[in-house]
Design a protein around this nucleic acid. Sequence first.
DNA 1: CTCTAAACGAGACGGTACGTCCAGTCTTCGG
DNA 2: CCGAAGACTGGACGTACCGTCTCGTTTAGAG
Lengths: 188, 188, 188, 188
Amino acid sequence: MPAETTRRRGAALEAELLDAAWAELAAVGYPKLTMEGVAARARTGKQVLYRRWGNRAEMVIAALRHRQGGSVADRVPDTGSLREDVLAVLRMMAERQRDIGQDVVHGVLAEIGEQRVEVFDIMRDVMTTLLERAVDRGEIPTADISPRIMTLPTDLVRNEIVMRSEPMTEATLVEIVDEVFLPLVRGK
Amino acid sequence: MPAETTRRRGAALEAELLDAAWAELAAVGYPKLTMEGVAARARTGKQVLYRRWGNRAEMVIAALRHRQGGSVADRVPDTGSLREDVLAVLRMMAERQRDIGQDVVHGVLAEIGEQRVEVFDIMRDVMTTLLERAVDRGEIPTADISPRIMTLPTDLVRNEIVMRSEPMTEATLVEIVDEVFLPLVRGK
Amino acid sequence: MPAETTRRRGAALEAELLDAAWAELAAVGYPKLTMEGVAARARTGKQVLYRRWGNRAEMVIAALRHRQGGSVADRVPDTGSLREDVLAVLRMMAERQRDIGQDVVHGVLAEIGEQRVEVFDIMRDVMTTLLERAVDRGEIPTADISPRIMTLPTDLVRNEIVMRSEPMTEATLVEIVDEVFLPLVRGK
Amino acid sequence: MPAETTRRRGAALEAELLDAAWAELAAVGYPKLTMEGVAARARTGKQVLYRRWGNRAEMVIAALRHRQGGSVADRVPDTGSLREDVLAVLRMMAERQRDIGQDVVHGVLAEIGEQRVEVFDIMRDVMTTLLERAVDRGEIPTADISPRIMTLPTDLVRNEIVMRSEPMTEATLVEIVDEVFLPLVRGK
DNA sequence: CTCTAAACGAGACGGTACGTCCAGTCTTCGG
DNA sequence: CCGAAGACTGGACGTACCGTCTCGTTTAGAG
């Protein structure tokens, strides 16, 4: 028999677990993802998973974070143009969506009861930053814009993610920004 | 023994099955809804359910339709004012949401793969009707409006339904119409 | 549509049902024989079967009789030699066994509760006839032989049928007659 | 809450499973014995049964063995008389039959395809032992007796078990030994 | 450096539901 | 009334996972 590598523990093990979860997700899709499948892929027992995450959804969310690094809030774009900034944010959302896949989105949404709302706050904060910079640059007169309008682009993109099967196109993003968001922000 | 009622069949049975599904949904919620539970409540076997609907989601959708009657398209409002018409549509959506519950929405979305998109077409048709009437009344200059803007109110309401835990308020609906939709439609 | 032949009835239908049962038996074996399968093969409904036979075993027994014609009692051999007569009876038993198959034997035995015993009486009667003829021919001194010994050959063959997987050989039958039965009958 | 007993495992659990199977057999009979019923009686899940035995028949056989301890081969009688030895063996067989019940015998025979034959070998070995002892005692001249005759008594008892509904009487056993077996063994 | 507590790997356990098959009965319609 | 067709109530099948528990083995870190 080959000399076994040493037994995995702690953070190193955790990383492998999340990789296994991600691989399983890619292999069988969210609806068929099982704790047993992930444990088997990671060559360990279910207890090791349950020690860390209470259920499938928590584990998958952790796997997504593990794969995608920080949130949008950590990479607020600053291109010098409000239009480009907003487009950059929307592109990040769309890209994540492509990476994750729609069934995962729905599955996770269905299994976590709450804490969905935090996403709104994050996006509102990001947009506030973008608008303040635009005011500083003189692009728009004021950043005092209703929260509803502020989160309009991200809300619409989220709606596309949730409802459309096919991945979003660049044209869709441009349309949202040019036909809806900018006219409202520029007022009149 | 009591005189048995005659054995149920066809449409009469089907209605009882859907009632049972709805009752079960109310009793245990979507995540804990099982075919066995529904069959037990309807005092029949699982085969009778599977003969009609291939899976849980299909059955639940049928139950929702059975309970809610026709779609929005069958009851297009006509109040004499574009603002009130659109608000009426949004109120119908919100009311359905309250009736159905969020976990059902997510559960069903997660389990049906496709056919999500048809909802868009329905809503676009409804909105087209409303706008044409508004043009006829002279409220707005033209009904030639981009599809994106046409479905804006319903898209936003749908986003609220999917993402917010609490039921929607009337204020939210008014905000969507007055701050977003009408300014864009009236345009410059 | 093709011109339908007139609907089957009575004995003609019954014969087709039994043929279908036999064909199904050959196709899937007794353990997998189902009333539904037979009904489908005969292109009719289950009720038609249940109207005639109360359960699977009854139907199969009827099918066996239908295929095999009369019982051993109807074809008592008369070769002019006791040894050959008995061998002829055993060969008939063995041949039926080959035709029917062992799993059918066990299946039917398991599902009929009683009336197994009648077989003993039939065989005892047949053997009585054979022995009386042998006495008449002067082969043996007396036909006054214990029932136990009379049914010995058939009992042993039945034991082989029930317990052995492979079909019986001629040698086995000869052994039973020459080593066991004849010595006891000829007595001291 | 009551102090839970620790979860059952391994051999202790297995013994309880087999007891439950036996109890279920006594309660409902073989034809109505179900894996679900046994599992319920043993307060466990079906998987625990299927992990050990692939089907109903295997489980029942294990239950019989569990209840009846070793085979006949482990308790070869030695009374000092061939007649009594053989009778003792037959009585053991008859007793087991009474304990087990006929429907179980048929049910098991119907569901196991093979391995029926091993019973023959066991009995032939036992009888060989008995006969050798008889030769040593000078009861009979030689133990060189055809296998057919050696297994004659057990074959006949088995035939009775399989074909007769009522339990066997002592008289039947005596008849088999005195009228059939001993005359053949003692030869002329 | 030894001892101990915790984590790991493996898998059995008690349990729920799955989706399917079949039994046996009932209903409807056509001949 | 009976045949043909098929739907109904009901029960069990064998499988898949759930989340928990138990076992023996490593491994890190405290004394």
